[in-house]
Design a protein around this nucleic acid. Sequence first.
DNA 1: GTATACTCCGGTTCTCCACTGGGGTTTGCA
DNA 2: TGCAAACCCCAGTGGAGAACCGGAGTATAC
Lengths: 144, 144
Amino acid sequence: MDLSSKSEYALLALLELSPHYPSGEPLQIRQIASQQNIPDRYLEQLLATLRRGGLVKSQRGARGGYLLARDPWKITLYDVVSCIEGFEPRADPAQVADTPEARVIQGVWGEVRQAAEGVLQKYTLQDLVEKRNAQQQVDIMYYI
Amino acid sequence: MDLSSKSEYALLALLELSPHYPSGEPLQIRQIASQQNIPDRYLEQLLATLRRGGLVKSQRGARGGYLLARDPWKITLYDVVSCIEGFEPRADPAQVADTPEARVIQGVWGEVRQAAEGVLQKYTLQDLVEKRNAQQQVDIMYYI
DNA sequence: GTATACTCCGGTTCTCCACTGGGGTTTGCA
DNA sequence: TGCAAACCCCAGTGGAGAACCGGAGTATAC
């Protein structure tokens, strides 16, 4: 019921990439990692997953790096979390007994999942960037 | 993001206890376990947690067993899951870096949690029992 | 006073998370 | 052409928690 640091790291990385999307300039793992202090070798794996999930593109070689695969307002938080957590293949039949009670519980749990996913689906990376900017404005106001 | 079998077992057990609440007759671990085929030694531990959480009462000795601590409509699914999963003490400061981005993400995640908890809070054990009864009615209809 | 239940404590196996390391391969640039 | 900077792939490790199992103790009804 809590956010894994896997997902949190991925979101932080994509948040770093978002402002660089218009320019088309890639960002390197090292830069992202030091900016958000994430272990860089770990972030590498997460970015590889995101690449395989079609959320980022990579550029190899010197002056390479990562950049978003599409506009920041076309990537929802659900896209990110489901890609990184990999909870799409809900089809393993290694489930518990199929009693009437179990079925009822599964139904309610489906509602819980839907509620959670609904929230994740309504936010995009762009929204997060704007939220952060707004927050920083508030911080500045208080600072003055 | 999925229901642990811990919570599922606990809900199944409480669902078994619910119809026995009015009579005041306790149910034994063995009976609950065989009814829902849950490993009985494991269920024992879960029931102990529920007892410490004040959701069930235990009666020791011969003809002992467990019974609900209060009416089935006064126990929400949130009560059960939070008791068994123990996610109340959200105060350990072993968190990730406190960047503006991290704060924004935490905020959104708070919304996700609230959405999920909202669903769990609106259902009681009584609701589940009624859902199951309704489901069984439907099954019978189809059977005829 | 004995069988029947719960109670407490510990250990075990397994899986996953978070992370580290050691090789590769591709690319820009001098 | 060489080489360094980046990504790429695979493998392993340490700790934590989930899901159990087992045994010794304790309270209670009959």
